[in-house]
Design a protein around this nucleic acid. Structure first.
Lengths: 190, 190
DNA sequence: GGGAGACTACAACAGATGTTGTGGTTGCGC
DNA sequence: GCGCAACCACAACATCTGTTGTAGTCTCCC
């Protein structure tokens, strides 16, 4: 049993890279070894089976996409307004677009979870927790909109990201403009 | 060279089934043979390489998800209104949710196209054509909203479908309600 | 009914992949 | 210095996969 956590994280990161670059099909122990520049067999030592490897990637993606302390602090400070909400949203989208690799890997994992119950449990719980945190922040900040409205934003942002990271149907409009239009439409007035 | 079109379609359908059920990783010639209940090697005869197989699936998905004649006729008949627009949208979402298999396969292919330029070209063109048809219908029907607004609907609907087909974050709200909320928010007033 | 051409079943092979085992090395407590 | 346990590199194996080739079968037109 391997326990070196730093190396484990490095391997998981390499795995996410492979997943984004080559897709679920290319995600093999050996490919991760190569991406991480470690001797062949190392990934097999840390993640004994392919299933374990995927589970490791899910854990790691949770770490990578968790809001940082500074983000949370910034959120807590300012006073609520639709403009602020739009600011946050633009930031999130910008970050996820920049972390293209992780975001694409997350889409892969979400699809994978549609056919692996044990993955669905872990990933679903993580997603729902994030969603509920968003709702809590929103209501806590005195912004309009409850769970339903926040869910709408999740749907739209997910679809937007998928579009922008693959084949944009409307490349003429900037991503920020799209986000603003979404906020204008979906955030309840007052 | 094989030319039996009916069998070719049957194989492509089986391929989409495999793609949805097992993911990109499980999509192999032999798996398609099995799903289609044909002797091993048949899929290899029709789709000489894995790439050709994927291209075949894209073609087939275009056929499967094209709006039917009757749909188009129904669209052409009625007089435009936001309610009608919502009706259409609910129908589309219902249909894509029911054809879970094809929709999931399409998501797989979209992700795959993010790393296969030749796939991106075909799939991207198909997507953009569908998008432009939606825009044309919308403006032709005298409904408010141009390309930008229709794009918002595409994003939101895609995200909604992905959510509903994998791990719904807000199972309490019915899909129809979500669509209605989207129309209420995103369709320009008058 | 016979022959040409298309279609199909099946075999074969090289390379990739998941998984397990086996030694060797390293670092740490005593 | 010594032993122990954790960690690591590497080899090996059976299985799966993509791809190609070949021979058999069917169909349809003359």
């Amino acid at each position: 049993m391997a326990k070196n956590e730093a190396r484990r994280r490095a391997l998981a990161d390499a795995g996410l890279e492979v997943l984004a670059r080559e897709g679920s099909r290319g995600l093999t122990h050996r490919a991760v070894d190569e991406a991480a520049s470690v001797p062949a067999g190392t990934t097999s030592n840390y993640f004994r089976s392919r299933e374990a490897l995927i589970a490791g990637l899910v854990d790691r993606i949770g770490e990578r996409l968790a809001p940082s302390e500074t983000d949370l602090a910034a959120r807590a400070g300012a006073e609520p307004s639709p403009e602020l909400f739009a600011d946050y949203l633009r930031d999130i989208v910008r970050r996820l677009t920049a972390e293209r690799e992780v975001t694409l890997a997350l889409f892969e994992l979400r699809l994978e979870s549609s056919r692996r119950p044990e993955l669905a449990a872990v990933l679903g719980a993580w997603q729902r927790a994030g969603f509920e945190a968003d709702v809590a922040f929103n209501t806590g900040a005195g912004l309009p909109g409850g769970a339903r409205e926040i869910a709408l934003f999740h749907y739209a942002i997910d679809g937007l990201l998928l579009d922008r990271l693959t084949n944009p149907i409307d490349p003429g409009t900037s991503t920020d403009e799209v986000v603003d239009a979404l906020v204008a439409g979906l955030l309840p007035r007052d």
